[in-house]
Design a protein around this nucleic acid. Structure first.
Lengths: 196, 196
DNA sequence: CAATTGACTCTACAACCGTTGAGCGAAGCT
DNA sequence: AGCTTCGCTCAACGGTTGTAGAGTCAATTG
């Protein structure tokens, strides 16, 4: 909350404010549904400044939704763990922006497809089952469906799921989907949280 | 393919053509992404005629996506069967329109939430498990995720799944999710298809 | 302190949107 | 045949959108 003193620092600070405002708006109304003016207003700034900073609305969206996710190649367990953990609390704003526009913005569709395709092959290569890829795709798309149902549709039955319920129902279920040889990570630790 | 002779019949025919064009457009680009002009062009008609027929773009969308789904109260098995069956082929155009706009159009979000909420309670009431509702929600949202991953994101691993694969992998998996006491319907019969 | 840079606002524009009302021409009625 | 009905097109309007360019004023520099 410290006030920036130098001019460049202040500029960087407002750029950050604009980006965060954009993530909130994109995450709530999607790429087409949010206007540059709405982003500007949320950031307390003139609409043209948004363009001056990020070039265009689409460029800003690409940054806000992290359309260029680096293909993390670490192990399968960490991936799933992160997703499961994240799903218990709030979704990170860039994920919200991406998922929200996933079905209507072609760039977002492509980014999400690539992201999930990678996860599937990562998951599948730990097993040598013939149906490993299909099982992995099942697991991944289930997590996607769960995320959408809980955080975007807000299904009643998923409104408040407790940690024990996750352990007794959801975890064994996903374990079954992956096959017994693939181990899921241990119970999530709510204190650690990933940092972008 | 018979040409309509009476005037009212011709009017009804163009109305139907407009509705179907709207379903295609809405299903491909979403509510906000499709313009009345695009619908009109696909139907080979003047844009204003679209409004004259359906009042407004939003009213047309409500019809095209069947936002007012009657709460079918028949048994659980038939429901799941229908969804599973339908997922093997193409998605019906009104479903495509609804799912496509599910995350960006509030009316569509509400309609989808209500639809899925109902399915969950229908599924849950066949079992008396304490976690029955959560299990049902898991199943339903998995099917949703699968539908999205296959028909909208077009994940590589789900591009062409064969009927035997469905039987050996997907069906037992969903059976496990619901619990052993709840029986899924037998193998789908590709000849029977639901009619709107 | 004077000059200059640059972060930001103001104004405006061209494109596109959903929607309206008038008009046309053929089908229907008597 | 003459009059009416009506399915449809044409032209246009008001509003909103993303974005460009000029201007403003305070911080920086010499």
């Amino acid at each position: 909350m410290d006030e920036p003193t130098t001019r460049a620092a202040k500029r960087a600070a407002t750029a950050q404010r604009i980006l965060e405002a954009a993530q909130v708006e994109f995450g709530e109304r999607g790429l087409e549904g949010t206007t540059v003016r709405a982003i500007a207003q949320r950031a307390g700034v003139d609409p043209s400044l948004v363009i001056q900073h990020y070039g265009s609305k689409n460029d800003l969206f690409a940054l806000a939704a992290r359309l260029d996710r680096e293909s993390t190649d670490d192990d399968v367990a960490a991936h799933l763990f992160e997703v499961l953990d994240v799903r218990l609390g709030e979704l990170p704003p860039e994920t919200r922006a991406l998922v929200r526009s996933m079905l209507t913005a072609p760039e977002a569709t492509r980014a999400m497809k690539n992201f999930l395709d990678e996860r599937v092959v990562n998951l599948a290569r730990s097993s040598d089952d013939g149906d490993a890829e299909l099982r992995a795709a099942l697991t991944v798309s289930s997590i996607l469906g769960l995320t959408i149902a809980r955080h975007f549709l807000e299904l009643d039955a998923l409104a408040d799921i407790s940690e024990p319920q996750i352990e007794t129902v959801l975890r064994p279920w996903l374990t079954a989907a992956l096959g017994d040889d693939t181990a899921l990570p241990p119970a999530p630790d709510p204190r650690t949280r990933a940092e972008p």
